[in-house]
């Protein structure tokens, strides 16, 4: 790919819609630097009061798991139901547990 060095790099944008909630991925945009990325994210992704905090991350800085590894990574958790509270049988009449 012959990328023109004058093109602004890609940033991934995460918005926290309300205090107390997670920052959630909402999309991406282009900006020359981090400050501009935050400002652009404000204009692009919070025009309708969608946010109260913004994170931006250069898209190249994100590492992602491979779909081919999904079975290896995630299936082993399937049979470990003892990690969930419903796995356990509580005696009749016990309260607050």
């Amino acid at each position: 790919m012959s990328e023109n060095p004058n093109n602004w790099p890609l940033w991934e944008v995460f918005i926290q819609s309300k205090r107390g909630l997670d920052h959630k991925h909402v999309g991406s945009l282009h900006a020359a630097d981090a400050q501009m990325a935050i400002e652009n994210a404000r204009d692009v992704y919070t025009r309708r009061q969608e946010g109260q905090s913004i994170w931006v991350v250069p898209a190249v800085a994100i590492s992602a798991s491979q779909p081919d590894d999904a079975a290896m990574l995630f299936d082993p958790a399937d049979d470990k139901t003892y990690r969930h509270p419903t796995f356990y049988q509580m005696p009749e009449g016990a309260k607050f547990i």
């Binding site: 945009l29 282009h30 400002e39 652009n40 204009d43 692009v44 025009r47």
Partner: peptide
């Protein structure tokens, strides 16, 4: 000059 800037200027 850039889509992002277009949006910012309109704001």
């Amino acid at each position: 000059p850039q889509l992002e800037e277009d949006i910012a200027l309109t704001n």
